[in-house]
Amino acid sequence: MCKWILTNGASAFSHLPCCCLLLVFLVSSVPVTCHDLGQDMLSPEATNSSSSSSSSFPSSFSSPSSAGRHVRSYNHLQGDVRKRKLYSYNKYFLKIEKNGKVSGTKKENCPFSILEITSVEIGVVAVKSVKSNYYLAMNKKGKVYGSKEFNSDCKLKERIEENGYNTYASLNWKHNGRQMFVALNGRGTTKRGQKTRRKNTSAHFLPMVVMS
């Protein structure tokens, strides 16, 4: 536009004084556009927020819409293996004997009570006796047993309760919509999953570190 005024439009302003022509030249040469005005009207805070909005979240984070339901975090990651003893609220160490029988013992040095707890999914673990090589399992009827091979019965949901103890519920099996938990009664015998509840202390276990 400025070029057009200075060349093609020169004859239109030939009758004006030199001072007016100079004024027209100065005004028309100022590079003012709507885009520049829009940028100048933005406050520094707005500019900073718009530029940082795309870079404020690391690539490893996902938006709330894609993250789905919140999953409680644990101190271990998938694939982590911990060597522990599970000490029940009823003062028994959970053990899995060489014939696959699951029960509790008061003996602190019982080799069958040394367990490997392996994370197979987030919040889901497999528990295996180091001595007997049997996995802690629960079938769809709520029976707790030792499985020589890892299968769907061996997947247990590990949760830290408010009292600091852990509970272990079957991942795949429920009874009337209720979760079924691994539990030891006052005699150190396993309970049927149908008779257990999360708040029952018989289903509460304290993982104790095994010193190798």
Rank of each mutant, 00 (worst) to 15 (best):
S50F: 07
L21D: 05
D40K: 12
S59A: 15
G38Y: 08
A12I: 08
H15D: 15
S50I: 01
S53I: 03
L22T: 04
S29T: 01
S60N: 11
H15I: 15
D40P: 05
G68M: 01
L21K: 15
S60Y: 06
C18E: 15
F57M: 11
S66G: 10
A12M: 14
E45I: 07
S52Y: 04
S14C: 13
C19E: 14
T33G: 08
F57T: 01
S65F: 11
V24G: 01
F13G: 11
H15Q: 12
S66D: 09
S49A: 14
S65T: 02
F13V: 14
T47F: 06
L21F: 05
S14R: 08
G38N: 10
S29A: 15
L16D: 06
S66E: 08
M41S: 15
C34S: 11
S65N: 07
V24R: 00
S56V: 00
A67Y: 02
V27R: 03
S50E: 05
G38V: 05
S14N: 11
P17F: 04
S50D: 06
V30K: 03
S66R: 12
V24Q: 03
S51C: 06
G68R: 00
L42A: 03
T33H: 03
L26Q: 10
S51P: 00
L22A: 13
F25T: 11
L21Y: 03
S59G: 08
A67P: 02
N48G: 09
P44F: 02
V32N: 07
S50H: 04
S54T: 07
